[in-house]
Design a binder for these strands. Structure first.
Lengths: 215, 215
DNA sequence: GTCTATACTTCGATAGAC
DNA sequence: GTCTATCGAAGTATAGAC
């Protein structure tokens, strides 16, 4: 945060040093409306539909306002991402602090809401450097927020790190929830019920094991 | 197409059925050049950059040719998808027929090439009905091509279906390779080596088990 | 600090010339 | 069977009026 406009052109990198036209304030209500509109469009119609004209129409405003509040469209995308990402990270950290069990971690990850959101930004990150950096930074923080909890939960049930490294368990869980969400959106759901039952039963088995934590 | 019925009783005036403008032949060399150009653009810059003008420029042709060979841009997208999808499916079926071992299935899936391709079409499928249908149909065929091999490989090593259903193993494998590819593209690779080693070692353990197939 | 008037580029698509 | 001329709509972005 606190990315003041000045720092943008202050860098050593060779820019044409444009006289940086004026940009609306961060806490403008109009700006928030534009962000909300952009997010709705992104989820409903994909990133290619998030254009200045479409966003403005969705918000009931003039297209030029988009360019007043955001220097370029990428800045709008990044801000849309950042808002949700920060909120989601905070939600996870709080939920894990309250209950870091495997069951809860699975429940949090298996929530299909946000799957479309992740998909759009994953695609965007593939082709836009600035967005990639933003998404990568978030991915690392999100990972860090979970891996300790997984490690603790596994250790508590007597599963040594060399038998199942926490990061492996976490990547498997992430991958599984991701593929389920992706296929679900396609309408391809064969085997999904079986898979959910399997995972839940596996977690239940684990949690029936004695709790070996020291107290 | 060719909606004949209506015109039969009323002669000339058919308002809603335009005389469907002429479209170039399927096996035109120019058409193939356009498809190649579209695929390159898709991978390098994302679907939002696959416009008639950009595609034509990439192919060294005039933009109008895109509309001559493809009724609408969606038709172009679908054709780009179909070409690669069919080739990939054939490749998998052949490879599995030759060697349906878990090791080979993992190797085939872990290949990160095509990750960007899948990403773009997953995003497109989320918002375009025609493309979703195409991708969903392919996903089902791709699944079917693998699930029997996984089932056979597990059964051969004495793993009963109720202990690890083949579809669950396949979804876990798919999810894992997908998340590895996705993070790799982001430059987030912490734990990836550990995970690859874990999976390969797990497969090796399995394959050291006695082969219980009847011969 | 907020918004509008405006410029110019690129978009998909069609009709009709070779 | 192949390609060109051209259209109206939509795209990003800037300069300047309130």
């Amino acid at each position: 945060m606190l990315s003041i406009g000045a720092s943008a052109w202050q860098g050593v990198t060779v820019t044409t040093a444009p006289p940086s036209r004026r940009i609306g304030s961060q806490d403008s209500k109009t700006r928030a409306r534009l962000l909300d509109a952009a997010e709705r469009l992104l989820l409903e119609e994909g990133y290619a539909s998030v254009t200045s004209r479409r966003v403005a129409a969705e918000a009931g405003l003039k297209p030029q306002l988009v360019h007043y509040y955001f220097r370029a469209m990428d800045d709008l995308y990044i801000e849309v991402f950042r808002r949700r990402a920060e909120a989601n990270l905070a939600r996870f950290e709080q939920a894990i602090a309250e209950d870091g069990s495997l069951r809860n971690l699975w429940r949090l990850n298996a929530d299909p809401r946000g799957a479309a959101f992740r998909m759009e930004f994953a695609a965007l990150a593939n082709h836009r450097k600035a967005i990639r950096a933003e998404v990568a930074g978030y991915a690392e923080r999100f990972r860090a927020a979970q891996v300790d909890a997984v490690g603790a939960a596994l250790a508590a049930r007597g599963i040594a790190e060399d038998r199942l490294p926490p990061i492996v368990a976490l990547l498997m869980m992430t991958g599984l929830t991701q593929v389920l969400a992706l296929e679900g959106a396609l309408g391809v759901t064969a085997g999904h019920d079986t898979t959910l039952e399997f995972v839940e039963s596996a977690i239940a088995d684990l949690e029936r094991a004695p709790d070996r934590r020291r107290r």
